[in-house]
């Protein structure tokens, strides 16, 4: 069995790479696949916090690479889902602690045992990014509907295209606010795709529950009410090859919005 190695990257910081990694990983594991999440953000690790596994980490990615422990000792099993494992980054080292070859070797080893190996990439295009991308064959580019994030995503896509080992790359647009899109205050999903010319994997709405879930250490996909959680579950199903329609984010919430929308459509019709 050979699993899929997917890197989750963005270029710009703070667009939700780690949140996306944690949620897609959890969602894939919920669907029955065996998943290992690797935090490659050495020195600034966060993935363990989002999964609520901080207190269980004894060995890290650097310990594995430097052969201070066996690989299986460093894999921390998730509290809720036995299919999900985390390989945490070291907090007391920096990006130069591992090399591209070492991570590639590690990914090759892990993909023999797991269906999915997800790499959470650090921000930037320096060594940390190069390391994370080295072992991957697929990429998910996370961006937000902001000009700066799109500019950086464009740069990242360029770098990914230059790498032969990356077979496919897909776009996740995070933190979309449908109401702002309607009033033309935010770039729409179509605008982003037209700018980046990239296949769309999913659209994740801005959801306050993400903040709660980060603080609690429980990924949003575990919360049924969360719209973002639903979007991540759909993304996971698309990764597994299902054809899932995109959620209609524009759906009006109350009667007043419905009436407004009706009159708007009349206006457009004329």
């Amino acid at each position: 069995m050979s699993g899929r190695v997917i890197v989750i990257t963005s270029g710009k910081g703070g667009v939700g790479k780690t949140t996306t990694s944690a949620n897609i990983g959890t969602a894939l594991a919920k669907n029955g696949s065996s998943v290992v999440l690797i935090d490659t953000d050495i020195g600034l690790r966060n993935l363990d916090l989002l999964l609520g596994l901080e207190n269980r980490i004894v060995y890290t990615l650097v310990d594995v690479v430097e052969e201070r422990c066996k690989l299986k000792q460093a894999l921390v099993k998730d509290k809720r889902n036995p299919n999900l494992c985390l390989l945490a980054a070291a907090q007391t080292r920096d990006k130069s602690a591992v090399s591209q070859d070492q991570l590639k070797e590690l990914c090759d080893e892990l993909k023999e045992e797991f269906d999915f190996v997800l790499l959470d990439c650090p921000a930037g295009i320096e060594q940390g990014f190069q390391n994370a991308v080295a072992g991957a064959s697929e990429a998910i580019v996370v961006t937000t509907p902001e000009v700066s994030a799109i500019r950086d995503a464009d740069r990242i896509i360029g770098l990914l295209q230059a790498r032969e080992e990356i077979d496919s790359y897909k776009l996740v647009i995070n933190r979309v606010r449908p109401q702002m899109v309607q009033t033309n205050d935010m770039l729409s999903v179509d605008d982003v795709i037209n700018t980046l010319h990239c296949d769309l994997l999913g659209v994740v709405p801005d959801d306050t529950y993400i903040i709660t879930s980060t603080n609690k250490g429980i990924p949003a996909v575990n919360e049924e009410k969360s719209l973002a959680g639903k979007a991540y579950l759909n993304i996971a199903r698309r990764i597994m090859g299902e054809d899932v329609p995109f959620i209609d984010l524009d759906e009006p919430k109350n009667i007043l919005d419905k009436i407004k929308r009706f009159f708007k459509s009349l206006g457009k019709g004329e």
Partner: peptide, 10 residues
């Protein structure tokens, strides 16, 4: 320190 082993999922 190094010998402390917690996780042996294998």
């Amino acid at each position: 320190y190094v010998k402390l082993e917690d996780h042996l999922p294998n």
